[in-house]
Nucleic acid binder design. Sequence first.
DNA 1: TCTGGGGTCCTAGGACCC
DNA 2: TCTGGGGTCCTAGGACCC
Length: 478
Amino acid sequence: MRSAPVILHLDLDAFFTAVEQLHKPSLRGKPVVVGGVGGRGVVATASYEARVFGIRSAMPTAEARRRCPNAAYLYPRFPAYRDCSLAVMALVREVTPLVEQVSIDEAYLDLTPTHPGAGADEVAAVAEGLRARIRATTGLTASIGAGTSKLVAKIHSDLAKPDGLALVPAGEEAARLAPMSVRAIPGVGPATAARLAVHGVGTVGRLAELGADEAVRLLGRAHGTQLHAFALGLDEREVVTERAAKSVSAETTFDVDVTDRVRLGRHLRELAERVGERLRKDGLSGRTVVLKVRRHDFSTLTRSTTLDQPTDDVALVVQHAGRLLAGLDVADGLRLLGVGVSGLSLYTQPDLLDGLLDAPEPPVRAAAGDEGGEEFVRPDAGGGAASQIAGEAEPEVTLAEGPAPAGTPTWRAGQDVTHAEHGAGWVQGSGVGRVTVRFEGPHTEVGRIRTFAADDPALAPAEPPVWHAQAEAEAGPG
DNA sequence: TCTGGGGTCCTAGGACCC
DNA sequence: TCTGGGGTCCTAGGACCC
């Protein structure tokens, strides 16, 4: 446990509706609801003016309309929210590089790197400074919780809302948490709260008194252990800057239940196309295809099948998901259809791979700076990268300007990661100043390049300079 | 009131292997 | 020949979060 409250949790207040009110002054001071506006829509965010009427997130929009017919009901504009989020997160990263963005409107910060030895007063000043800059540059208000752990920071950003700061001095965690409802703990939802209530546990303090063994008996091994530790104010989770995606999915709820298999098939293809698009954009492929359906009675089923090889091929996803769907009874109607891919790995493109492996070695020139004209990075110039693999493995590869060898796959401008592993291969792109080469596991075949969407002309670099790099490395000892 | 869409993590049983 | 136990993978479902 840290000895000072250097972990912050920042949460933008009523984010979606705040952006709408920012962009449209006539909405300011008025009840605004952002969410699904169709017959089966639910509320994503209600402005504070709308919350006065009892409107809450996840409430059916129909119910919200009953409570406040005069509110503005808006369909979400995610691109606008993403832009605002990027602006805020840029300010956040000026405070510390140790930022874990957990959603479009939330992030944890660890101030240790930039404010070593900071006490509560300094942390409070940093947090207030950040809140002020967010307001001044974006017009949005943020609430911040500060404590010695993610848990305490998270719980207190909620208590600070709206537009506030709540800081818990080191040593006061358990006492602060004890009187709170167990529902204040992240991970305690309706089901867990109900199970605890049966045993007379309603507060965090009572959960702490219960003891770890009893908590495990009631809630299962993982959940029980974790929640009991939380109840004592114990939380050793680190702030981590990057987490790899584990699945990609798309789903849709129909306005009216669907029984027609032809229509379902069309929706299935659309959903698979969305999944495929995202897989390729992120340079991923997955081995398990998952079909999800929700029936007329709201019961949910999933069916999955695991392939021999990871794929991002829409046709293949459609084929397997379609087979899974064919095995289900849809006579009573489906209200939701979803398709997903899990078991993700960094993407390989077999045809490109073959071409590359069969192709003659690309010309190797002097390392950057040695000669005029085209400059390629010499494979051994990346030797530093290879030597880092055995460690934690995100070596950077220097880029050189100039044309890359024929057949070199392209990554999308602005996409900050390309992948090569355990071998050499060329990559190129534009608009990005550096390439990070990421290595997975000790297991992959030599010579594989994992990347890109080279077959998509829309992704080809339009503007010079065109960069290329040779990513070169060897397997570490594992 | 009648329940979105995108995710994560956990549990449990069965298959399979050693 | 029969039996046991542990580990891993796969599948399905459920709780939870924003």
